[in-house]
C-alpha cells in the first residue's frame, strides 16, 4: 500500500491552472522527490496532500484514508514559508506543537529534551525564539516538524537557506527515517541534493507530471553519448574517427561526443590502439541535465 496516492488531481486559482491531472503513488519507505521549476505546482501539491487546500477534482489518499485530517498526527509537514511564535520560548514552542499534534504530556516531557539535544539547542531551551540565529531557527523548525515522530515527512524546499552543516543534519535524519521504513516527500529544485537522496523522482512543470519514475531507472534509460577521457600521445586522429561528431579538448582532457548509434566500447578500442588512455568515463546524465532537457522541451512544445 502506498503512503500517499494522488489520483488525477486538478487545482486552479482563478484562471491559473496550478495542478493539472496529477497522479502519483508514493510507496511506503521511500524518499520521493518532487522536482520542478518555480511555479510548477509543487507547493500546491504538497498543500493539497496536507488538506490545507482542497483539490478542485480528483482524489488524494493518505495511509488509505481519504483525507489527511485524520492522519495529521502521523505526518510531519515543513512548509516552504517557515515560521514559529517569536515571543515563545524554544521549549514551549516545541511542546505546543507536539501537543496540538496529539502527543500526551508525559510523552512530550520525554521527547522535547531529546529533540533539543539532537539539534543542539538544550542551552537555548528557555530563550525566546526571536533570539535564535537563523540556523538555530531552522533546526528548531525541523524539530517542530518531526516532534511527533511522523510516519510520513513532507518537506517543502527543505534545503532553502540552510548552511552545509544543517543540510547534512537534515539529510542524515531523512535517510535514518527512510531506513526505519518511514516515507519522505520533499520538493526541491536543488538537483544534486535530490540526486543523492531520492529513490523516486517526480518532475512537474506547469502543473503536469513530465517524468515519474525510480531515479536509478531514469538515469539508466538515458545513456549518454558523451565520453570524458584523458589521453597521452598524438590525438589529432580523434576528430577523424567515423563515429565521433564533436571533440572538445583542454590539454590532456577531452570531451568526445559520439553519434547516436555509436558504441562507446568501440571508441575505447580505437583509442587504446593509438594512444595511452589515463581515464575513460561514459558520462551518466545528471538530474540537472535531464531536468533542463525535459523542462526546456516541454516549454518549447507549449510555445
Amino acid at each position: 500500500m502506498g503512503a500517499v496516492l494522488l489520483n488525477s488531481v486538478h487545482k486552479s486559482f482563478g484562471d491559473v491552472l496550478a495542478v493539472n491531472n496529477l497522479s502519483v503513488k508514493v510507496p511506503t519507505g521511500s524518499i520521493y522527490g518532487f522536482l520542478g521549476p518555480n511555479g510548477a505546482g509543487k507547493t500546491t501539491t504538497l498543500r493539497m496532500i496536507m488538506n490545507i487546500i482542497r483539490p478542485d477534482s480528483g482524489s488524494i489518499e493518505i495511509f488509505g484514508d481519504s483525507s489527511a485530517e485524520q492522519a495529521k498526527a502521523r505526518i510531519g509537514y515543513m512548509p516552504e514559508e517557515r515560521g514559529l511564535y517569536r515571543k515563545m520560548t524554544v521549549a514551549k514552542v516545541l511542546t505546543y506543537f507536539g501537543a496540538i499534534k496529539g502527543l500526551a504530556g508525559d510523552e512530550l516531557s520525554r521527547r522535547v529534551p531529546r529533540w533539543l539535544q539532537r539539534i543542539d539547542l538544550t542551552n537555548w531551551a528557555n530563550k525566546k525564539v526571536e533570539e535564535l540565529s537563523r540556523g538555530m531557527h531552522q533546526k528548531l523548525q525541523f524539530a517542530v516538524t518531526a516532534i511527533n515522530d511522523p510516519e510520513l515527512l513532507i518537506l517543502d524546499e527543505p534545503f532553502a537557506g540552510l548552511d552545509p552543516i544543517n543540510t547534512d543534519l537534515l539529510k542524515a535524519i531523512m535517510l535514518e527515517m527512510r531506513n526505519e521504513g518511514k516515507t519522505v516527500i520533499l520538493s526541491t529544485h536543488v538537483m544534486h541534493e535530490a540526486e543523492k537522496l531520492c529513490d523516486f523522482i517526480l518532475l512537474i512543470n506547469k502543473g503536469q507530471s513530465i517524468l515519474d519514475d525510480k531515479l536509478a531507472r531514469i538515469q539508466s534509460q538515458r545513456t549518454s553519448h558523451v565520453v570524458s577521457v584523458e589521453l597521452e600521445g598524438d590525438t589529432g586522429f580523434i576528430g577523424r574517427l567515423p563515429t565521433v561528431t564533436a571533440v572538445e579538448s583542454d590539454g590532456h582532457h577531452f570531451e568526445i561526443t559520439l553519434a547516436d548509434s555509436a558504441d562507446t566500447q568501440q571508441l575505447l578500442q580505437s583509442l587504446v590502439e593509438r594512444v595511452r588512455v589515463q581515464r575513460f568515463e561514459v558520462k551518466v546524465p545528471s538530474l540537472h541535465e535531464i531536468f533542463v532537457d525535459l523542462v526546456g522541451a516541454s516549454n518549447a512544445e507549449d510555445s
Partner: peptide, 13 residues
C-alpha cells in the same frame, strides 16, 4: 506575518 500559520495548519484544521 510570522508565517507560522501553515505549520499550524499541518497539525490542526
Amino acid at each position: 506575518t510570522s508565517r507560522v500559520i501553515e505549520v499550524l495548519l499541518s497539525a490542526v484544521s
